[in-house]
Design a protein around this nucleic acid. Sequence first.
DNA 1: TAGATTGTTAATCGATTAACAATC
DNA 2: TAGATTGTTAATCGATTAACAATC
Lengths: 210, 210
Amino acid sequence: MQNSKISNAIIRRLPRYRRYLGHLQNKGVKKISSNELSELLGYTASQIRQDLNTFGEFGQQGYGYEVDKLYKEINRILGLDREYKTVVVGAGKLGQAISNHNYFYKVGFTITALFDNNPAVIGTKVNDVEVHDVAELEDYVRDNNIDIGVICVQRDGAQSIADTLVAGGVKGIWNFAPIDLEIPDKVSLESVHLSDSLHALSFMIKHKIP
Amino acid sequence: MQNSKISNAIIRRLPRYRRYLGHLQNKGVKKISSNELSELLGYTASQIRQDLNTFGEFGQQGYGYEVDKLYKEINRILGLDREYKTVVVGAGKLGQAISNHNYFYKVGFTITALFDNNPAVIGTKVNDVEVHDVAELEDYVRDNNIDIGVICVQRDGAQSIADTLVAGGVKGIWNFAPIDLEIPDKVSLESVHLSDSLHALSFMIKHKIP
DNA sequence: TAGATTGTTAATCGATTAACAATC
DNA sequence: TAGATTGTTAATCGATTAACAATC
């Protein structure tokens, strides 16, 4: 389980494995082989076995994988067997959308506060969570042992917010601002570049790529 | 410019090239070499030259690349030299966030209508754009030659909305529902799986990956 | 036991990097 | 012209796929 050996490609496939295993579990499926998973996911059976064996031996020869067990293992591998205390910075429409996304609560991301610099929204509530003054961000993060900061502010304020989150001691940043943030290596960064994604779609349309 | 030869990795880098070239242009930088771009972007100079040469010869030996020209070329390659008529399906917080994201307008994605199935919001306006009844979606898409449909509905309704958009004749779908949609090959699909992204962040935090 | 399917090593493929001739 | 930097071919690296022995 050496970090240095885990490629980004695998990291991107793991949540997808989890999603499909969750569906199978809901359908009451008890057992699945790498071949069946291959048909479902579109990865080769070989790749699926390789991916899983990066983290351990979860199957049984001649039988396959127990869905319940594999789902639990992948949750553990993904770090979804714990709670993450989370704050959302920027209480605009996007920040509200993220905060409302009740899916997050189900898997342990607890949003404890929102932050904004607009006096008109400070003190209001979004989905029962209070909007604080962004001036209090660093202290709040430190005092409440916040794990993750979600950045939903405009591009120009994003780096400064990131610095504040890092100073407060977050372990990870989920960034929605269209900028490549500078973050120390001890903090994990995942950026969702919506405009990049839209531009990739534009490219695919132009070049007729499915 | 054979489609079959363009790897997904390049498609994902192109919008990033565009972003940085835009910044350089705003700063008034006239000329840049692959080596300077390399320091800025963190890709090797060799990769940058390879990527660009997939689409043509945009530089000048002994000199480098003209920022203005290269920016324009990449816009053209990405298909950002035209207008895309766009509809957003699902007028919840996420749909509103996308509709408000005025950045999109700048580069030619014109949102002409929103759609929802909630009678309480049908007829209202979001960012000056009217919310229509989703029952009218297929006709609207067909009658107005809509290019792109953005799916901001819950998981369970997403495939049906996608089918309707395809029936209406969209060229691309930008999907935010946490599901892998089934779409005919003639239509391009770009999915933003927010939960997958968050789970990848969780993984990175657990495994201390920057 | 025989059949099935994993875990794992070996082979292949594709993407990235290095090198350098072409040329501005 | 000399120096710089591209465009492009060749070498390397890493990820995916194939093959098969281990074993349930």
